[in-house]
């Protein structure tokens, strides 16, 4: 009987490759939206506990990214946007990425549960599982609704942040969830419009590949028309001040204007590129203003209480 032993080359992966597996840009948006969830939550949380919760959420998001790169290495290798990632480049083996992501996923969830609370930990575990199993393994290769449903994973961090403080879930972070949820399709479809060939080559059924550009442009307009009013609801329902309301109205109007430009554009993809770039700014702006609004509101309330006790 002969035994074949696969020869494994010693790894040349640097620290930077492992950081790349964590998808730092996605992680930064996750951390930021989770921070807003923490800040707007009622009640007090010790800054060290809040910091620990943020770290766990960041590492959990990174773990989901690493597990996504492990499973999607074949797709990544065929797409120009992702061909430079550590696994397609051969610097990290899929097994290393799986071990790295799996370890971090378990560590981040258990740490969040032990040090903060188990509601937040359960939500983090659900987010990682949803992103890896439901989105990456199932939806991404199967349906053009992949990013619509899969977007739920990216929308959960504000709820996790809120749960880290309160131990429960309420309507306020759910509104933030809905904003990110309805923001995701126009954001990614704008990208997929000018990356359609890439997705087609990789066999990913993104909307422009399956339904064509016209249908995608129409869907971008529809989702943006839902998103813009939704963005204003935290102010309308009294969860945010007028500063947020004005910013959300202005940014929402700009998003609609851009979506209409994407709709009317037929030849080039200039508007799609603008829409993709502006959508990032839109989400950042909404959450940043909400953060400022809440922090400044708290400071003003403190000052009033100090002057007139």
């Amino acid at each position: 009987m002969s035994v074949t032993v696969a020869r494994v080359e010693p790894s040349i992966a640097g620290v930077g490759d492992y950081i790349a597996l964590l998808k730092p840009r996605v992680m930064s948006l996750v951390v930021f939206t989770a921070l807003v969830g923490i800040v707007i939550a009622p009640g007090h949380v010790h800054p060290v506990i809040a910091f620990t919760a943020l770290m766990c959420i960041a590492v959990g998001a990174g773990a989901a990214g690493a597990l996504n790169m492990w499973y999607d290495a074949d797709i990544d290798a065929r797409m120009a946007r992702t061909a430079g990632r550590p696994i397609p480049q051969g610097r990290v083996t899929p097994g290393e990425a799986l071990g790295f992501g799996g370890t971090l996923a378990v560590f981040s969830t258990v740490t969040l549960g032990l040090l903060v609370n188990w509601m937040a930990a359960a939500l983090l575990a659900f987010t990682i599982l949803f992103y890896v199993v439901i989105y990456t393994m199932w939806l991404k290769r199967w349906t053009p609704q992949n990013i619509v449903i899969g977007g739920a994973a990216g929308a959960l961090p504000p709820i996790i942040g809120w749960a880290a403080v309160t131990g429960s879930v309420a309507i306020e972070p759910v509104l933030l969830f809905l904003i990110i949820f309805f923001w995701t399709p126009p954001h990614f479809w704008a990208l997929s419009l000018y990356r359609a060939e890439d997705y087609a080559r990789a066999g990913v059924p993104m909307l422009p590949v399956v339904a064509g550009e016209t249908a995608t442009r129409r869907q971008i307009v529809i989702y943006t028309l839902i998103l813009a009013p939704l963005g204003v609801t935290p102010w309308l329902l009294g969860y945010a001040g007028p500063l947020y309301g004005i910013a959300a109205l202005a940014a929402g109007a700009a998003m609609i204007a851009l979506a209409l430009r994407v709709w009317s554009e037929t030849e080039s993809h200039a508007a799609s590129k603008q829409m993709f770039a502006f959508s990032i700014l839109y989400l950042f702006l909404l959450f940043a203003v909400l953060l400022v609004d809440r922090v400044s509101g708290g400071l003003i309330a403190q000052a009033i209480a100090h002057v007139a006790p």
């Binding site: 010693p10 790894s11 040349i12 992966a13 640097g14 620290v15 492992y18």
Partner: peptide, 13 residues
């Protein structure tokens, strides 16, 4: 040499 350097960097991290 490159593998040794990479391993050392990973160990420190």
């Amino acid at each position: 040499e490159a593998q040794l350097r990479a391993r050392r960097a990973r160990s420190i991290a």
